[in-house]
Each structure stands twice: as C-alpha cells, then as structure tokens.
C-alpha cells in the first residue's frame, strides 16, 4: 500500500509546484518551495521502503537539512531587502 502514499505525495508536489508558479507574492512561492522540499523528504522515505533500499534514508535526512537552511536563507535575503527598501536613507547615513 506504499504506492498510495507515494501517489498522494506526487500529486501534492504537483499542487505545490502550481502554487509556486501561480503564487502572487514572494512568500507564497517560498511556502510552496518549503512544502515541496518536505514532500521530497517524505517521498524519499517512502521510496526507500518501496524499493527496499535503506540508503535513501540518508538522502532524505540530508535533503531535510538543506531544505530548512535554504528556506531560512531565502527568507533572510528578502527580509533584509525589504528592510533596506523601507529605510532607504538609513543605509547611507549609517555608513
């Protein structure tokens, strides 16, 4: 019955990709990308048992780490850009 979960995860990944392409704001896209990464980890875990290859679990763990750091890095980038846009004169006055 693992393929039922795998198909559900595949469909959800397609939906998250559609949201990432449609999403009107930056944060919708980041949310969809974060969810896509989470679903990749789940899919790798299911696939490890589906194909009986337990080394896929290491890939899932590494992908979970990279996904979290990547989402935080992109959020910090956009947050600092918005901070600079909100106070355009503060950067020039401070330095």
């Amino acid at each position: 019955m693992l393929h039922v979960a795998a198909i559900a995860i595949f469909v959800t990944m397609a939906l998250a990709l559609a949201r990432a392409l449609l999403g009107p704001s930056i944060f919708d896209r980041i949310l969809a990308a974060n969810m896509f990464g989470t679903k990749v980890v789940l899919l790798l875990a299911v696939l490890a048992f589906f194909q009986d290859r337990p080394d896929f679990l290491d890939l899932a763990l590494a992908y979970a780490l990279i996904n979290f750091i990547g989402v935080l890095a992109v959020l910090e980038f956009f947050q600092s850009r918005l901070r600079r846009q909100a106070r355009p004169s503060a950067g020039e006055g401070g330095q």
């Binding site: 019955m1 559900a8 995860i9 959800t12 939906l15 949201r19 449609l22 949310l31 679903k39």
Partner: peptide, 21 residues
Amino acid sequence: VVSGGLFVLVGGIGLLRFPDL
C-alpha cells in the same frame, strides 16, 4: 501511511485553493 498520504493530499489541495497567504 495511507492516512498520512490523505493528510498530505488535503493540505496540498488547501495550499492551491485557499485565498490568502
């Protein structure tokens, strides 16, 4: 596993169809 897949699918549909961030 199957109920987890159901939850994942429901959340994915909600992510696509809900109106607000």
